[in-house]
Each structure stands twice: as C-alpha cells, then as structure tokens.
Design a protein around this nucleic acid. Structure first.
Length: 487
RNA sequence: GGCGCAUUCGUCUAGCGGUCUAGGACACCGCCCUCUCAAGGCGGAGAUCACGGGUUCAAAUCCCGUAUGCGCUACCA
C-alpha cells in the first residue's frame, strides 16, 4: 500500500445525505483514519438541473453530526481545492481539449432529437444503444466552422472497438469489459459542464486520490474511467466497489420503503453512535463475532479486505436494538443533554424540571428504552399524573380489598418525612406484613395508582422519584376515581 | 434485450480445502432472575451453505454451467 493514502467522499448536492451515502462516507473515513491518510469531501455539483438549494449545507451539517470530519473540503479548504466541481470547469475543459488533441475525444453536434431517434432505431433492431460516432469523422475544418458558428456541442470519449479493459477491484478482484459495449461517453455537456466520468477522473487525479471507494453502481462505468486514466497518462487509483444497501425486498435502498435520509434517523431519535455502528456492519465485518462498536474501534479494525461482496438489507430492527445498546452504554450524564433536548420540545417543557430530576428518570429508564424519546413518552407518569388506568392491569391487580389496603398504606406514607427509596420500601413491606398480605398486593396497586400502567421501573424507584406529596395525591385520586368507576 | 456483480438461518453475518453433525447477532419462543416491564443469564426453533456438474483422499470453501436477484445500459450522479 502506498504511503500517501487519500480518499474522498463525493456526493451530489441533490437534497439530503442518504444512508447509503453515509455508509460510503464512513468506509472512506475509516480507511483514511486507519491508515493515517486524508479524508476529503468533494461536492459533485455538475448537474445544474438536479441542484437543490441548501443541500450542501445540509450535507455538511449531517456529516458533522455523525462525526465524519474531513481534512479537506468546501468549508475547511485544503491545497487541492476548490472542492466544488462547479468551480473547476476550466480544468475539465483543459483535459477534454488534451484528449481531443490526442484523438481520444471529439466534438459532436447532434441534436437531442437525432440522438433519441438513433436510440429508438437501435433498440428496435435489438442493438446495444450507443452513439454511432457520426461526428468523429468530421474534418477539422468542419468542426471549426460549426464551433465558430456557435453550434451547440458536446465532447465525447472516443472508445476504441473490441478492446479488453481490465478493472482491478480490491473487493471484487478482476473484472473484464469489452469496449464494444461501452458508449462514446459524453465528457463535456452542451452547457459546458462535465459529466461525472470526466470530472471524477480529473479531480481524483488532481487531488491525488489513492483509493476510490464508492458504491457498486459505479462498477459498470469504471472501464470508462480506466480508459480516461490511460489516455491522460495517469496512474490508476485502487478501486473498491462497495456492496449496495437494499430495501427489505432486495431492491436498491430507496425512499418509499422507509426512511433513507440520515436526518430522518436523527429526527427519530437514533444516536449517531448507533447509526454509525449499524451502517458499518452492513457489508463489513472484522471476521469475528463482535457487533457493538464505537468509532475508535471501527477505525482500529477496519480494512477493505473485510468488506463483503453481496448487498445488505437495511434491517431496522437491528438498528433499534443497537440504539438501545448505545443508550445503555452511555452514562446518565452523557444522556442528559439528549434527553433535555427532547424534553424541551415536548409538551412538558413548561414544567421546569431540574437536571437532577431528569437524571433520576434517566437512571430509572435507561435499561428499558430504545430511543431517547422513550425517556419521555414511555414514562409520562414522571411528568404528569395518570389520566387513566390500564384496564388489564386494573382487572388483574385491583381487587375488592385493595382500596382498604391502600388507605392503610397511605396513612403510613403520610407519616414519612423526606422519604428515600428505602423508606418507601420499608414502609410498604411493614404495612403488608401488618395487614397479613404479600407485598405484591400493595406493590401492584400502588404502581397502577401512581403510574396508571403495569410496567416500568421498580415501584420504590418510582415512588422516590415522583416524591411523597405527589405519590399521596395520586393514590388518593386513584382511590376516588377507581371506586366510582367500579360502581 | 445487452453487459456486469452477487447468492450461508426471515435479516445482518462468521467461514477463506479437513477443526462444519455450519458459529454469532437481531427478531421469535421458553426458562431463570424478579414487585411489573425491561435489561441480563441460560436454552430452543431456524441454513440439505441457490441448483447441477466437475477438481480433490476431502468443498460452504476451487472451477464450469444453470437459475434467481440486483446494478448499469442518460447531455443523472
């Protein structure tokens, strides 16, 4: 492996960062960090019709959010800039011209109509649709005349017939293509912008990219790139084509079948750690059974050799599990800012709850949540008194003698002063003993009365967190409400 | 249609010629723990390694073919 490892993530600013893009970016990032190389962000904005306002900012923001910091890029600069392809137009024209001079490319003046017609005819004859090289045979004078007349033109690659092009890929080995099936690819469009193929090759060379790590959808066009490198007299980078991310029905991951934008996952409450962890495991494995990874460990373990060849279905269930795992891995203090953010967006924001209170909730709920949001919506009883009582639990746990038992307990609770968790427990157990009943006969009704539901943290934690006064209030209202409902 | 890539439990995967009567994880089921729900622990079910031929003393692992899936086939990336 060469000493100067330089890789790049080169998205088009067409909207948001796709999870497939995230995976590609991540693998580039991991490879760079692992090998002490450079990770570069380059914006491939050569299709003006697909350009979306604000997409670049959005891309950068989400990349920052997940922690994929790049060494060179549009907003951080670098010695190989500019990092927007739209600002590098002269460069592409320079090399396109060089190719023309060498006979590897040529001007073409076809109208879109002719091209369309040509295609249809070829399709009808069941031929491979490709340009017929009509304008390759224009004389220099004719070309000059048309150019001077201001006729719209494109520049096409002059692909030679019946040659073999070998693509060497670290993940897939050697792939052979015959040039007969390769079209005379347009290099420069009639609007003066380059196509991906030219821009990509020129920039990768100029930016000294050592490894091209990108999605598998690029494999079929790699022979064109190889030709370009050859004609320009440039050294080939190492290619690595990553397996695709798939929908559950095994088609290429797309919207329609679930969320596809990284920002959607962020909005849904996924931790960046979980997303990174999950996406890293889609098509890569260290060769062992480890599944829980932090970024540093990924960097340490990553290698292109560990990348799979087959596409991977994006399995949301596993992401969910990993999200829970990462929540559990974090301390309550680390979780606090995340929970606060959710809390402040919630209907309970005006409660002015203290950090201490939130911390208690976090500790009580950490083992039972999958999302940060769950710290609020899965345990609303920490924020408000129950509005209703779960009927199934009611039926199962609220017996005829329950109100009486609860009243006794209530009296005991009222005597408590500044009770700790242990005080609640002691009191409840002692009361149960006094009444000659199992502690469960009190525990379950108390939980129901205080939380309205039959699940959650241990009751004594619950009571302690909610606090004596509120506990008493809630038990009293439960006694009232449930009695009246029974009658 | 053409070209290319891929194919191990439902899903993500381990496996790189003998240790595989194929291992782990998610999801599912059961048990334990227990005041509930989780978490955790233990166990279960789940893959004739797509199929068919070879090569070899020996193949999930190498080769060929078939099937299926997917990708590409644009003045999109």
């Amino acid at each position: 492996m060469s000493e100067n490892i330089r890789v790049r993530f080169a998205p088009s600013p067409t909207g948001y960062l796709h999870v497939g893009g995230l995976r590609t970016a991540l693998f580039n990032y991991l490879f760079a960090r692992k090998n002490k190389g450079k990770f570069i962000l380059r914006i491939e904005d050569t299709d003006r019709s697909r350009y979306v306002e604000g997409a670049v900012e959005n891309l950068i923001e989400t990349l920052k959010w997940v922690g994929l910091d790049y060494d060179e890029g549009p907003d951080v600069g670098g010695e190989f800039g500019p990092y927007f392809q739209s600002q590098r137009l002269e460069l592409y024209h320079k090399y396109a011209k060089e190719l023309i001079d060498k006979g590897y490319a040529y001007y073409a003046f076809d109208t879109p109509e002719r091209l369309k017609q040509l295609r249809e005819e070829q399709l009808k004859k069941k031929l491979q649709p490709k340009y017929d090289k009509r304008d390759l045979y224009l004389s220099k004078e004719e070309v000059k005349k048309k150019l001077e007349a201001g006729e719209p033109y494109v520049i096409r690659l002059n692909v030679p017939p019946s040659e073999k092009v070998i693509v060497t890929d670290v993940i897939r080995g050697t792939v052979e293509f015959n040039t007969d099936i390769i079209d005379d690819q347009i290099l420069i469009k009639s609007d003066g912008y380059p196509t991906y193929h030219l821009a990509n090759v020129v920039d990768d060379h100029l930016m000294k990219i050592s490894h091209v790590i990108r999605g598998e959808e690029w494999l079929p066009s790699t022979p064109k790139h190889v030709l370009l490198y050859k004609y320009l007299g440039w050294e080939l980078p190492v290619f690595a084509h990553l397996p695709l991310l798939l929908n559950p029905d095994r088609s290429k991951l797309s919207k329609r079948q679930g969320d596809v934008a990284v920002e959607d996952y962020k909005a849904k409450g996924y931790l960046k750690e979980a997303l990174i962890n999950f996406v890293a495991l889609l098509g890569w494995n260290a060769g062992d059974d480890k599944e829980f990874y932090l970024m540093d460990e990924l960097i340490e373990k990553f290698s292109l050799e560990g990348v799979n060849k087959a596409g991977a279905v994006f399995n949301i269930e596993k992401l969910n599990w990993l999200n829970g795992e990462h929540i559990r891995f974090k301390s309550a203090e680390e979780l606090l800012p995340l929970v606060k953010e959710e809390y402040e967006k919630s209907e309970y924001a005006n409660l002015n709850l203290s950090d201490e209170y939130l911390l208690k909730i976090i500790n009580a709920m950490k083992e039972r949540v999958e999302f940060v949001k769950d710290f609020i919506y899965t345990c609303k009883y920490f924020y408000e008194a129950p509005k209703e009582y779960d009927e199934n639990v009611l039926r199962k746990r609220w017996k005829a003698d329950t109100p009486e038992h609860l009243k006794t307990l209530l009296d005991e609770f009222k005597k408590l002063e500044n009770p700790a968790k242990e005080d609640f427990e002691q009191t409840l157990r002692a009361t149960a003993e006094k009444l000659g009943i199992g502690a469960g006969k009190l525990i379950h009704p108390v939980r129901l009365a205080v939380s309205g539901v039959g699940k959650g943290p241990g009751v004594f934690d619950l009571l302690y967190i909610i606090g004596k006064d509120e506990v008493i209030r809630r038990i009293e209202t439960a006694l009232e409400k449930i009695k009246t409902e029974e009658n």
